[in-house]
Design a protein around this nucleic acid. Sequence first.
DNA 1: GGCTGGCACTCTCAGGTCAGGAGTGCCAAA
DNA 2: TTTGGCACTCCTGACCTGAGAGTGCCAGCC
Lengths: 352, 352
Amino acid sequence: MTQPDPAPAAQLSERAQRLLKVLVERYIEEGQPVGSRTLAKGGIELSPASIRNVMADLEELGFLRAPHTSAGRVPTVRGYRFFVDSLMCVQPLESAAVDRVRRTLDPHASTTDLVQSASTLLSGLSHMAGVVMVPRRDSLTLRQVEFLPLSDRRVLAILVVNEREVQNRIIHVSRDYSRIELLEAANYLNALFAGRDIFQVRSELLAEMRRAQSDVNDLMRRAVEMAEQTFVADGEAADDFVMAGQTNLMGFSELADVARLRQLFEAFTQKRDLLGLFDQCMHAQGVQIFIGDETGYDVLEECSVITAPYEVDGRVLGVLGVVGPTRMAYERMVPLVDVTARLLSAALNSRV
Amino acid sequence: MTQPDPAPAAQLSERAQRLLKVLVERYIEEGQPVGSRTLAKGGIELSPASIRNVMADLEELGFLRAPHTSAGRVPTVRGYRFFVDSLMCVQPLESAAVDRVRRTLDPHASTTDLVQSASTLLSGLSHMAGVVMVPRRDSLTLRQVEFLPLSDRRVLAILVVNEREVQNRIIHVSRDYSRIELLEAANYLNALFAGRDIFQVRSELLAEMRRAQSDVNDLMRRAVEMAEQTFVADGEAADDFVMAGQTNLMGFSELADVARLRQLFEAFTQKRDLLGLFDQCMHAQGVQIFIGDETGYDVLEECSVITAPYEVDGRVLGVLGVVGPTRMAYERMVPLVDVTARLLSAALNSRV
DNA sequence: GGCTGGCACTCTCAGGTCAGGAGTGCCAAA
DNA sequence: TTTGGCACTCCTGACCTGAGAGTGCCAGCC
């Protein structure tokens, strides 16, 4: 996890913990700094003065802070962290919401549509921004390849991988090939390598070529030339995510500053920072929570991010999550993200 | 064009016109309401008092308005419109910028990349938001079609159209076909219809089928079943645009209100309004300017939009443009949009 | 008749003051 | 250890004020 330095719960009396819990819940709900009077009336059975003592302790320990002398207290990042780790009661997601997620993530839809739907769902149900990394496909099983001649020594390669995904790329070759020559090369590759991993095929072909040197025939040379360019990873390019509901973030008063908002949205379009954050979550298990500067990125200082990986056949393919202000309903967001990740995994798994 | 009701230039003395021109230019540059003193010192050879008289006339005619009693004047939509139609001197775009556009719009790139580059160029050079409609391809020439069996009576159809564009769709068929059966159907369609328009092919096949009724063989029936679903327009779905540099709009003080900004960005993600506006420009000639409420959409009230259609073989394929605050440097944006549209057309035309 | 200088007027903006309210910290008493 | 009391701090909004900018209008001038 990501808490900066462990704040031993031992430091906090049972009473202080209860108080912190109520205060954080209250603050998340109302958005106003909460004072001792408010707490005394709602949930804490102590006089305002005693509450003030406890709050002073909590402030000293770094769980709370006062925006100014007479303004009640607000949770710090550390306060939220402790709340999230030890105090929060995660309720299961309402079944209506679960149903909606389940119904929307149709296993028959294409991967792109699934990713799109998932991010729309996340934003719709959280009223914040939803993000879904597009699945990284580290294994690309060749199903079929096809080449079509273009002019200028260029060839259009069409690649069907993993049963239903179609990719196409334009490759540059050493001379113009005829339609027939390309067909032969494709047939050769299909016959020999259908059902195999394309990167393996590529390196195998190259190795074979090098070993055999002189006695390779023209057909094989052709095939290798194509394969070399066709079967390259576009993993780099596919390192991407889909986002929905960014505009929801404009509704939060915490983020109402136009200049900050601009930076935030620029970070969203550049994608780099969020991708960095999401990459960290790829191989962590289950739901992760990053609060404020725990994200490690300045632009996200006022934001929290909740993520969960999704997977197929037990292999993590990507990460999804929500982005919102630090003052968010964590106990609702955690199950939302969790359920969405599970159901997206299920949809991807159960496809045929 | 779009001016609401023609403001006869005759109403305006030569002097008033000159004054309006200087005032609008000044306001666009500085962003502050401009007063009589400022004008007297910069460009207008009259005393402040005389200038005030002229300005009062212009205000009465609806070309200017005063934000408040002692704040100088600001152009109204009508003022901008008259400026744009009759007063503005459009300078040609700096050659450095033209070069950059030309170099960036590489004819060898894919359509998607070209559209993306064009919108990035527009936003980069305008410091506002750039928009490019994706080309509507009303003619889809079949080059090759391929079918691959999936489970559950579904087939993956891969379609190469217009020489280099690859589309794929999943179609539902009446029974599971074998790989061979699908191959036959594809060969049949390719042999007969390669190089033809896919919609024509579709209707022809259906007509033929209906005419021949009983004596069609199984192969043909199969082919028709595929073609029927494969060769459908996705023109609807492709009604789309690519936008870049939205965040630039957050820098303008005119648009600094978070609530309005949110509406604007929501309109951008929903796309409907902008598409409506762009559709109007499809069949107008050359550069179009929409100022403030001339756009016809409330969210764009504070914005101006400048568009130009782009074309291939003399046929308009789409529209591109920029979106910014009404207070923009029209005389620079017009040639920018114009040149980008021309060079995008050129790039699309000269491809091989 | 059109242009100009002068002048009173209006409006915004920034800064300062002030009272009210909210919440705290501390202390002494229960 | 808890609690009530009290002085204190700080924010907030309202109000005022003076400076600055620009106008409208008028009377005089070319």
